[in-house]
Write a protein that binds this DNA or RNA. Structure first.
Length: 138
DNA sequence: AGCATGACCATTT
DNA sequence: GAAATGGCCATGC
């Protein structure tokens, strides 16, 4: 796990944020980072999920707080709207779980992509660019 | 102790 | 618009 207190706090914060993602929806690493007010640490979000214990371990107290059972790691995808490739079979398992939850995932031959419009993920939410007011196209 | 790697992303060539 | 660039920082060697 984390070596420093601060890192530990970061891990916990990430897990808590991920827990907010509702069933049937997905969001991005970047969005999680954004929610935590650290838009530059999208990568660390991935690190956290990588180290998320898949199941609670009697000897590891922390794993009883956060684990694959209560943290929907599978609902986090990359900004391209695809499941980030990782070790063999990993992405596929994630795609599998998502499908179970009702999220439409399709394999285009190279990667598992989330079918947009079927669930409502927010790629770069945080817009509020004030663009709305104008109303005209760029 | 460094150095390399990685479930990433936005920006700049 | 694809490819490189810089930043992030926990882990592993």
């Amino acid at each position: 796990m984390a070596r420093t207190e601060e890192a530990a706090a970061w891990f916990s914060a990430v897990y808590r944020a991920v827990q907010q993602v509702p069933v049937g929806k997905v969001t991005t690493y970047g969005h999680i980072a954004l929610l935590l007010d650290h838009p530059e640490r999208a990568r660390q979000v991935g690190v956290c999920l990588k180290h998320l214990p898949s199941a609670p371990d009697p000897d590891d107290r922390y794993s009883q707080l956060f684990n694959g059972g209560n943290v929907p790691w599978q609902r986090i995808i990359n900004s391209k709207g695809a499941i980030s490739p990782r070790g063999p079979g990993g992405a596929q398992r994630q795609a599998d779980v998502l499908t179970e939850e009702g999220v439409e995932v399709e394999y285009d031959g190279m990667e598992y992509r989330i079918k947009l419009g079927t669930f409502g993920w927010f790629p770069k939410a945080l817009p509020s660019e004030d663009e709305a007011g104008s109303g005209d196209h760029c």
